[in-house]
């Protein structure tokens, strides 16, 4: 299964789309919850045609603040209404000391943070009555780290017994920014927990820094890393994330086609999880 991010710039085109380049759509629930009017009609139309996957923004699983139960309640109503089975969130924090920052800040790779997040994941899963899938995020500096990134992710995923959304582009971005081997990194993750994959483009802003913009085409080395990764894991849904600089749908069809052809070679005859 290949999916495409449902963005307002693309909504009408995606609703009218007749081809088979994508099989599901992903959206940020926070951008669509509690909406009426025009955008609600767009949401309902796409939901009639495709399964909806949700990729959240405001859960802030790594926050020192307590969980926002009012938000979780509203989120559950939304997930139930659109029969969302796949709900993922970023392994980062976007709210701290009672202020939202609306972006993904890096959590210190530390044991107490692992324990803190594991208990929160369990609580979220219980409240939402569905599994939470945690995504590895890109980061530009680690902060007060006392362990490696792969240890941090692995411990959280295995101790919480949750699923992993492996963002292959984020691995590539981090391996470049922090100078490690992307393949070695992936092999150190609990790959049997991978439930979902993200693919995206990024922007190299200097000789030693890539910013994860989701605003460019996927570059060949990321396609290659994805091809290699797909051979290490069982079949899972794959999403093309494109959040800025959004081209016309026919252009994205090409990238979706590339993803489809890689997965159909790597995962011949194996059913998607």
């Amino acid at each position: 299964m290949i999916g495409l991010g449902f963005r307002r710039d693309l909504a009408e085109e995606m609703i009218a789309y007749k081809g088979d380049a994508f099989d599901f759509v992903e959206l940020a629930p926070e951008n669509w919850m509690n909406l009426g009017g025009y955008w609600k009609t767009q949401l309902d139309q796409i939901a009639e045609r495709y399964p909806i996957f949700c990729h959240g923004l405001s859960l802030s699983i790594g926050s020192p603040d307590k969980l926002d139960y009012a938000f979780l309640k509203e989120l559950k109503v939304f997930l139930d209404r659109y029969q969302v089975k796949t709900y993922s969130e970023h392994l980062s924090y976007s709210k701290c000391d009672n202020a939202h920052l609306y972006d993904l800040l890096p959590i210190p790779f530390r044991q107490d943070a692992v324990n803190h997040i594991v208990s929160r994941i369990k609580e979220v899963q219980e409240m939402l009555e569905r599994p939470l899938i945690i995504e590895n995020v890109s980061y530009y500096t680690s902060v007060a780290a006392e362990m490696e990134e792969h240890e941090f992710i692995s411990q959280i995923v295995t101790n919480a017994n949750c699923k992993l959304l492996l963002d292959v582009n984020n691995v590539y971005v981090n391996s470049f920014n922090h100078g490690y081997s992307s393949k070695e990194f992936i092999l150190q993750l609990p790959l049997n927990h991978v439930e979902y994959i993200h693919m995206a483009g990024h922007e190299k802003i200097s000789d030693d820094l890539i910013i994860d913009t989701h605003g460019q085409d996927i570059i060949d080395p990321v396609f290659e890393l994805f091809e290699w990764t797909s051979r290490q894991i069982s079949p899972v849904p794959v999403l093309l994330e494109r959040d800025f600089n959004i081209p016309e749908l026919p252009f994205l069809e090409k990238e979706l086609g590339q993803l489809k052809s890689i997965t159909s070679k790597a995962w011949k005859k194996q059913p998607v999880r």
């Binding site: 020192p64 603040d65 307590k66 800040l105 107490d112 007060a144």
Partner: peptide, 25 residues
């Protein structure tokens, strides 16, 4: 004490607050 604050060391919390504060100000 808040439920969520139990497992997080005060130092880790402080570092997270510092980063958030820097992003704000």
């Amino acid at each position: 004490m808040e439920k969520a604050a139990r497992s997080l060391n005060p130092e880790t919390h402080r570092i997270q607050s510092q980063l958030a504060e820097y992003c704000k100000t």
